[in-house]
Each structure stands twice: as C-alpha cells, then as structure tokens.
Design a protein around this nucleic acid. Structure first.
Lengths: 108, 108
DNA sequence: ACTATATGCAACCCTAAGGTTGCGCGAAAG
DNA sequence: CTTTCGCGCAACCTTAGGGTTGCATATAGT
C-alpha cells in the first residue's frame, strides 16, 4: 500500500529532543531560546529541530518583534496515528482470518 | 514528562523499510528472506531491521526448521499512540485554557 | 553423503543527522 | 545613536545507522 502520509512526521517523532519540544509546545507557545533553556543543547540545535518540525507540519511559527514564537500544530499527528491504526487493523484482520471468526482481541 | 514508553518504538517507526516490514508482517508471518524479496535491500539489511524491531518489541520470531519466521506484535504500538494522544490532550487543554481566558487575551 | 538454501555474525563503507562554534543582521531597549 | 539581545545562516565535527560483502553454520532435500 502506498504511503498516504507524510513520512516526515515519523521522522520528527523519532528524536527525543523533538519529542520534548512537542511536549513543551503542547502547553505553551515559546521561542527557540526559551525552549533551549530547558534542554541540554544549544539554541541553534533547537532551531534546527524546529525547522524539522515545521517541515513536518507539526509547528507553526509567528514573529513577535525580534522573537519567533513557535506553536504546536497537532494535525499531522493524526496521520501517524492513522498509519499505526491501519497496521493494527490489518493485524486484527489477519488474526480474524486465522481464527475463522471469533471475537477480536481488544485493539482498536 | 517521564518517558513511560519505550523510545525504541518511535525509533523503529522512523525508518521506511521498517514500516514496510511492519505492514507486511501485519498480514502474514514471513522470514527475512521472503521479506527481503519484496524490498530493494539485501536480506542482511532486512535482518538488521528485524533485530531492531524485535528489540522494540514489535515483532516476535519463531524458528521453523531452518527458517526464522517473524510475526508482528502490535502491543508496543499502543505506547506510541498513547504518547501522541497525551500531547494532543495537553494541547486541547491549553486551547481550553485560552478560551476560558478570552476576556484577557494575549500570552503569558 | 552431497548439495542447496536459510540464517547469523562480523567487518567495512558512506551518508545523514544531531550538535557545536562563529558571524552578521535586525529589532528592542537605553 | 549605541548597545543588547534574539535569530538565521553557514561551516565544521562526530557518530549512529542503514546498507553491503563475505563467511561460517545448520537444516532440508535428493
């Protein structure tokens, strides 16, 4: 089956620093400098991650004076969940085929 | 923000070849050689990915004669979904807070 | 017993990616 | 106007990891 989702989302989710950024941005809008202050990496490293997140569609940015504020955009996360759910569903279908037609295991 | 999940799951999901393997294994049990036949990489590359998937808990292996058959184990996928859902929920909570304070706009 | 096939392991290559430092620029603060 | 602070860009470093080849082992088939 073709990949109907943007693979960059999974790529974005793979890095612990980026996951931390998403968690932080889920709670408040913040600048790269602010975000870096709570992480063991430099501001530039965070900035790179934010670029990756923006390219994955996971964050939006807004300029406020000399600051650039980043905000979470959770929409693409649905694609990731959809992919995972599809794999799970296909697994369930396979199990159903194997068992004839019994009750499905609690997935989904 | 304690990581209640195994980061290796997100790592496993990040690679397109591994995602393909998961999709294939969702539908049928298969050996590394079989899986490699439908991919543009060698059997050894697939074998490495299967090791990674097993370490992430996403596949189980079973020896059948001289073959090693791999089977999907979707359980860890729930952890990934749970993490994503948590971020989404926190985002929703933030939005709710913002709406609740519409009388005093601006960010804090 | 001999051959063919499937696997696992190890060494090696090469690129992508995460990280850093350095710099120049633009906006806010004084 | 000058200083300060935040940012973006670029160069560079280093490692992880995805891929390959080669080989040794073990099972299936004849």
């Amino acid at each position: 089956m073709s990949d109907i989702f943007d693979a960059r989302v999974f790529d974005a989710l793979a890095d612990p620093t980026r996951r931390h950024l998403l968690e932080a941005l889920a709670q408040r809008e913040a600048s790269a400098t602010e975000l870096a202050s709570e992480l063991p990496v430099t501001r530039q490293a965070v900035a790179k991650h934010l670029v990756a997140l923006r390219e994955a569609g996971l964050v939006d940015s807004r300029k406020s004076g000399r600051e650039t504020l980043y905000q979470l955009n959770p929409a693409p996360l649905d694609q990731a969940v959809a992919w995972i759910a599809r794999v799970g569903d296909e697994w369930d279908a396979r199990i159903a085929r194997l068992r004839g037609h019994l009750s499905r295991p609690g997935r989904g």
